[in-house]
Amino acid sequence: MSSSFRSSHSSLDNSAFHTAEFNSSELNTSASSRPLAAYGWDDAWAAEFAPYAEQGLVPGRVVRVDRGQCDVVTADGTLRADTAFVTPHDPMRVICTGDWAAVEPVGDPRFVRTYLPRRTAFVRSTSSNRSEAQILAANVDHAIIAVSLAVELDLGRIERFLALAWESGAQPLVVLTKADLVPDPAGLSYLVQDVETTAPGVQVLPVSATTGEGVEILAAVVAGGTSVLLGQSGAGKSTLANALLGEEVMAVQAAREVDGKGRHTTTTRNLLVLPGGGVLIDTPGLRGVGLYDAESGVGQVFAEIEELAADCRFHDCAHLAEPGCAVLAAIEDGSLAERRLDSYRKLLRENQRIVAKTDARLRAEIRRDWKAKGAEGRANMQAKRGRLR
Score class of each variant (00 low, 15 high):
Gly225Val: 09
Ser125Asp: 04
Thr210Met: 11
Arg157Pro: 10
Phe111Arg: 15
Ser227Lys: 05
Gln171Tyr: 04
Thr226Leu: 03
Pro117Phe: 01
Val106Thr: 15
Gln193Cys: 11
Thr226Pro: 01
Leu230Gln: 00
Ile145Leu: 07
Thr226Gln: 07
Val204Leu: 06
Pro206Gly: 10
Leu149Val: 06
Pro183Asp: 07
Val222Pro: 02
Met92Gln: 13
Val112Leu: 10
Ser125Pro: 06
Val174Cys: 05
Val94Ala: 14
Ser227His: 05
Thr197Val: 13
Ala219Tyr: 08
Gly214Cys: 12
Glu132Phe: 11
Arg110Pro: 03
Ala133Ile: 02
Tyr190His: 15
Glu104Cys: 03
Gly201Gln: 08
Leu218Phe: 08
Asp141Cys: 07
Ile145Ser: 02
Val182Gly: 02
Pro117Leu: 04
Trp166Ile: 01
Ala163Lys: 00
Ile95Trp: 01
Glu159Pro: 03
Gln203Asp: 08
Ala150Tyr: 10
Pro105Glu: 05
Leu176Asn: 09
Trp166Asp: 01
Gly201Glu: 06
Val103Cys: 04
Ala146Val: 12
Thr126Gly: 12
Ala199Val: 09
Ala146Thr: 04
Ile95Asn: 01
Val103Pro: 00
Leu188Cys: 11
Val175Cys: 06
Thr210Cys: 07
Leu188Tyr: 08
Arg110Asn: 06
Gln193Pro: 05
Thr177Asp: 05
Ile158Asp: 00
Val174Ser: 02
Gly214Arg: 13
Pro200Arg: 11
Glu216Asn: 14
Ala165Ile: 06
Val106Gln: 15
Ile95Cys: 13
Leu181Thr: 12
Ser127His: 11
Leu116Glu: 08
Val222Glu: 03
Asp108Arg: 15
Val204Gly: 01
Ala220Glu: 12
Tyr115Leu: 06
Asp154Ala: 12
Ala219Asn: 12
His142Pro: 05
Glu167Phe: 06
Val175Gln: 02
Asp184Val: 07
Ala223Ser: 15
Asp184Ile: 08
Gly212Asn: 09
Leu205Met: 02
Asp99Thr: 10
Ile95Gln: 05
Ser125Arg: 15
Ala146Arg: 00
Arg130Thr: 15
Trp100Gln: 07
Ala146Glu: 01
Val195Phe: 08
Leu155Met: 13
Ser168Val: 09
Arg130His: 15
Val228Cys: 04
Leu230Asn: 01
Val207Gly: 05
Leu230Lys: 00
Asn129Gln: 12
Val202Glu: 03
Pro117Cys: 03
Ser131Glu: 13
Arg93Met: 10
Ala150Ile: 10
Pro183Phe: 03
Gly224Phe: 11
Ala219Cys: 10
Cys96Arg: 14
Arg118Val: 05
Glu159Lys: 12
Pro206Thr: 04
Pro109Arg: 09
Thr177Val: 09
Gln203Trp: 00
Leu164Met: 14
Gly187Asn: 03
Leu136Asn: 03
Leu218Tyr: 10
Leu205Glu: 00
Asp154Glu: 12
Ser227Cys: 06
Ala179Leu: 04
Leu155Lys: 11
Ile145Pro: 00
Val215Ala: 13
Asn139Trp: 04
Leu181Gln: 11
Pro200Asn: 11
Gly214Met: 12
Asp184Gly: 10
Phe111Trp: 09
